[in-house]
Design a protein around this nucleic acid. Structure first.
Lengths: 201, 201
DNA sequence: GTCTATAAATTGATAGAC
DNA sequence: GTCTATCAATTTATAGAC
């Protein structure tokens, strides 16, 4: 007797795949904040009961972990793109900035959530650790750009990195896919207002 | 029989003034997040009981309200300084940026909390409203600087404002009074990396 | 001004039927 | 895969003594 190919019983079709569930959940986390969102809130938003949610995940924290992992993966993928590892450091930096803005826009709810984690749970502390790692990789590029003589040497690389990606990350606070500014326009404006200061005259 | 001048009974001296209490509370709110901080957490951190805290304030939300109001007041005071209302707009903008960084550093825990409010409570919605008002005032200055020909006209004033103050606000995420960078150094670096992009050549 | 004791509601999570 | 029913712990807040 072999295992039947997951025959679906007619009465109750599966309402959610995990990624669809996650989509609704992350919206709630962003609207109310992770801690202020109860499983009851999530049940209401998904149209499921609390119990049904526990069928998909082990608990609230796993929902957070899955969501921030998605954002982390997307951002780290940028660092591995050819244009992030080849060529002059100042060009690599601009590429990473532009692509980070693009990823932020494309994965807006997930990146927004990632940028708000506080460190209360294990999942949050893991996310903070990865963010620090990302920042360190960026600072390396800034440092290289200084060494190559394309970025002013009178500024601390760590400080420049923080301010530059502070501006990048702040985009998550107000960017909307259907808003007044397109991704390209935002990235252009950011590069224009920062790189002209970064580049040596 | 007149009212006695608040004779303090020897047994239990007042442990806290409201602002001292608030100092401890805001530290907790920032460390755990407002929603994740329970009155029990606050009791432990202050060394008081939950009941005693309710003697000072009406509840958790009033603590939040008092804290964010302090940050809002300090930031709006910057807009009323003489150098924020007199002279060329581009100079006023630089002054507001530098002074905002200074206020952020001086009132770090309170501004940090303000920048994290989500809008769940009345106090939070009030804070978000004031932040929008602050942003609008800034955008006015940027617009004036464009009109006066000192800032590039090819960028949207609202967008420039958001990116510029996104960088300013991000400072709250990592700045520490005893850290590697002084307030002056941070403000200088920020102005250097942004205004050289903003100023017309 | 601070305490002990406790109320009323909500929370994250589980058991077990269908 | 979703449900009803329920639990134990925690949460915000109050009552009343000293």
């Amino acid at each position: 007797m072999t295992t039947a190919p997951a025959a679906r019983r007619p009465g109750r079709p599966a309402r959610y795949r995990l990624d669809e569930l996650l989509h609704v959940v992350v919206e709630q986390f962003n609207a109310r904040g992770y801690d202020a969102t109860s499983m009851e809130d999530l049940a209401r938003a998904t149209g499921l009961t609390k119990s049904s949610i526990y069928h998909h995940v082990s608990g609230k924290e796993e929902l957070l972990r899955l969501a921030v992992a998605r954002a982390v993966d997307a951002l780290f993928a940028v660092l591995d793109e050819p244009a992030s590892v080849q060529g002059p450091a100042v060009a690599r930096l601009e590429h990473v900035v532009r692509r980070s803005v693009a990823v932020l826009a494309a994965q807006l709810p997930y990146v927004t959530l990632l940028l708000r984690v506080r460190g209360n749970t294990g999942a949050e502390r893991w996310a903070l650790e990865r963010r620090r790692e990302f920042d360190a990789r960026l600072a390396d590029i800034v440092r290289a750009a200084i060494d190559e003589g394309d970025v002013r040497a009178d500024l601390d690389p760590r400080l420049v990195t923080r301010l530059l990606f502070g501006a990048v990350n702040s985009i998550a606070e107000w960017f909307r896919p259907d808003g007044a500014h397109g991704v390209q326009e935002v990235a252009d404006a950011l590069v224009a207002t920062t790189f002209r200061g970064l580049r040596r005259d």
